[in-house]
Nucleic acid binder design. Structure first.
Lengths: 204, 204
DNA sequence: GTCTATAAAAAGATAGAC
DNA sequence: GTCTATCTTTTTATAGAC
């Protein structure tokens, strides 16, 4: 059974599941070799599929790349939503934003790698959609910082540049944070949070 | 006149200058389009040269990529050298390391972009050389942090993970720090340093 | 749904004239 | 030193049989 939703043709649940598996497997290959350095033939081998069958699921190579991006942003924004819903002080919210973000990076190292390395390969509307979603998340961080300055929990920092410091510190863990390693998301989020909170706290 | 130095054939000064110009121009193209997405034909157009002439200077596309990497690491390590030579307290040294690093990122945005995005494209011996140099710099940061803990200037932080926080915060500026923009290297290094120093300072 | 065969373009690199 | 022409391989994507 297939339905029309939002102008996009939806396929069967089985098709969607298979597609998702292909997206995940391909993310691993892209992360290891790079997007442009990976041929469709290699994707076929990794997914144990012929070219005809693969294209039946992915549409195009770039659409596959966009699907990896969406997977990351879906998870990241869901985490930000949970934090916003729970509420609490700016300090508490920023700490939980860090926990959630590092959790995504830790759970999806390949997807995140591709997300942070290959976004310039997206073109046209796909590039724009990604840009908007990314900006949306960054704004969440800035808003929490602004709230903390206004409530005088934080000292008088610049929200924009401080958000960049926070984002860099956390995002850059994609280079070494992996499941199965000696570090968990929490064991990194904890010291990061301590440095950052103490760093922007109002001096007593 | 040509000499043999360290097993590598050196060319004339004119040749070296021309080559360096090609490296710089190509860095801009790689930064905009990606290494694998850029064809040698496009490099020829950007450098206003035919294929024969281009290959006369670059040897291979990957050798060109390696040259961009070296340009960045040469500058970064020179900055670290200056900091080490000047000496001073761990706090002062870490602050100056930040100034120097952001200065390189600000002055060579294209080279740094390529450096941070395309290093997986290096293979064999070239990949190894880059890995070693990069590790060498990271160790400098860890050493300063360790010294600060031992002198009790800093609280009891983990040097390895704290170095990653510092590196991420600074390196990640490659996404938005550019010459001609509203921000200078110093105007970013200053707030970053304040956050980080206060963040790892011994609580009074 | 999945395969094989193939198209059509572009890739990196080299040869040899000038 | 620089050019044009060319070699070989690989690229993304499609056609059509099953």
């Amino acid at each position: 059974m297939s339905r029309e939703v939002g102008g996009e043709a939806r396929r069967s649940t089985k098709w969607e599941l298979r597609r998702q598996a292909i997206v995940d497997t391909s993310a691993r290959v892209f992360a290891q070799q790079g997007y442009h350095a990976t041929g469709v033939t290699e994707l076929c081998a990794a997914n144990d599929l012929g070219k005809g069958a693969l294209y039946h699921y992915i549409g195009s190579k770039e659409e596959l790349l966009a699907a990896i991006h969406d997977r990351v942003m879906d998870e990241v924004m869901a985490g930000a939503e949970r934090v916003a819903d729970t509420g609490g002080s700016p300090t508490g919210q920023l700490a939980r934003l860090g926990e959630e973000l590092l959790d995504v990076i830790h759970r999806y190292p390949d997807h995140v790698w591709v997300f942070l390395h290959e976004f310039p390969a997206l073109t046209g509307e796909r590039a724009e959609r990604f840009r908007v979603r990314r900006r949306e998340y960054e704004k969440r961080v800035e808003d929490v910082l602004r709230a903390g300055v206004e409530s005088a929990e934080f000292r008088h920092i610049d929200p924009w540049i401080t958000a960049r410091a926070w984002l860099g510190m956390h995002n850059y863990t994609y280079l070494w944070l992996r499941p199965g390693g000696r570090l968990t998301a929490h064991s990194v989020a904890q010291p990061f949070s301590q440095i950052f909170m103490q760093g922007i706290a109002r001096q007593s």
